[in-house]
Amino acid sequence: MTRIRELHYRVGGAATGLFPGAHRSRSGDAGFEFRGHAALQDAPDARRLDLHASLRDPFGNWMVRLHSERKSIPVSVVADLSASMGFEGAQRKLDVLADFTESLAWSAWRMGDSFGFVGCDERVRREFTQPQTRIRGAGIALAQRLRTLQPGGRSAAALREAHRHLPRQRALVFLVSDFHLELDALAAVLDSLAPHDIVPVLLWQPAEFALSATRGLAQVREPESGAQQWLWWRPALRERWQAAHDARREALLSLFRRRRLAPLFIEGAFDADALTRHFLA
């Protein structure tokens, strides 16, 4: 068996979960991170008495030290499973998604976090919907199903409904797609996920945007509808093709910047270390 690569992630704010975990929080009294003082009658634990703070208190109260506890968070993947995700270059996009899902689910279990998955094309795919769980091997079975999927959805419209399947608690949500959808539709998806911490993950293959021949007759295919067209490649059209690709990338980055989101581009195979560096940057 191939060893699952572990990755490391974190959230920007304090965790608000009830279960112990690996993330900083502002709750609890008996952790390891000093948060402040409280009167003994408000936090009745004489083991944490602070004599110096008690002597300084102008009202003569006995003061105890409060230490925040580490908490867990929900981690979820909202994935585009439309036809364009079946594109195969050096790697198949769905295989990259499977590797990402397997690694994230394993890492969430290692950190004490719950893991969930919502797969969408024209509808929310029930067979690719995993409610939040702390089962150790949840990501392995899900990844196996993703590797055998032959996507046929003509759009990813159901991404706008994915928030209904996420936990009410603020979660870390990875929105995984090739983002070949209208910007207005993408903005609506991001707005629906706004209560959570969102990390857009763009799965691109270089072969999607590369043109093999300098000039000549070439067949191109629209990945969602399957419509095919013959084009005569020439230098001017090649330049327009590259300019359109650059403009699309900049438009996506602009949309993410307006919402203060830091996207992760995976252009090729999945690299767990690259995702870890994304959170440490």
Rank of each mutant, 00 (worst) to 15 (best):
Val189Cys: 12
Thr133Cys: 07
Leu146Tyr: 12
Arg35Asp: 07
Val11His: 01
Ala171Glu: 02
Ala213Trp: 01
Glu239Thr: 08
Met1Pro: 12
Thr276Gly: 11
Phe32Ser: 15
Arg70His: 08
Arg126Asn: 07
Ile135His: 15
Asp99Trp: 00
Ala251Thr: 07
Ala171Asp: 02
Gly13Asp: 05
Asp191Cys: 03
Leu193Glu: 11
Val173Ser: 09
Ile4Asn: 10
Asp271Ser: 14
Leu186Lys: 11
Glu239Phe: 00
Pro151Trp: 04
Phe270Val: 10
Ala157Asn: 04
Phe279His: 08
Gly137Trp: 11
Ala236Thr: 03
Ser155Phe: 12
Arg35Phe: 03
Trp109Ile: 01
Arg259Asp: 12
Phe256Thr: 06
Trp232Arg: 05
Thr129Cys: 13
Leu159Asn: 13
Gly216Thr: 04
Arg147Phe: 05
Thr214Tyr: 03
Val173Tyr: 10
His8Arg: 15
Leu7Asn: 06
Val96Cys: 12
Leu40Ile: 14
Leu183Tyr: 04
Gly226Met: 04
Gln229His: 09
Glu208Ala: 11
Ala46His: 13
Leu280His: 14
His8Tyr: 07
Arg126Met: 09
Glu69Ser: 03
Phe265Glu: 14
Phe34Gly: 03
Thr2Cys: 05
Phe128Pro: 09
Glu224Ile: 00
Asp178Cys: 12
Phe34Asp: 02
Asp95Thr: 05
Gly119Arg: 09
Ala236Pro: 00
Ala171Ser: 14
Pro235Glu: 06
Met63Gly: 00
Arg257Thr: 05
Leu40Lys: 01
Ala207Cys: 01
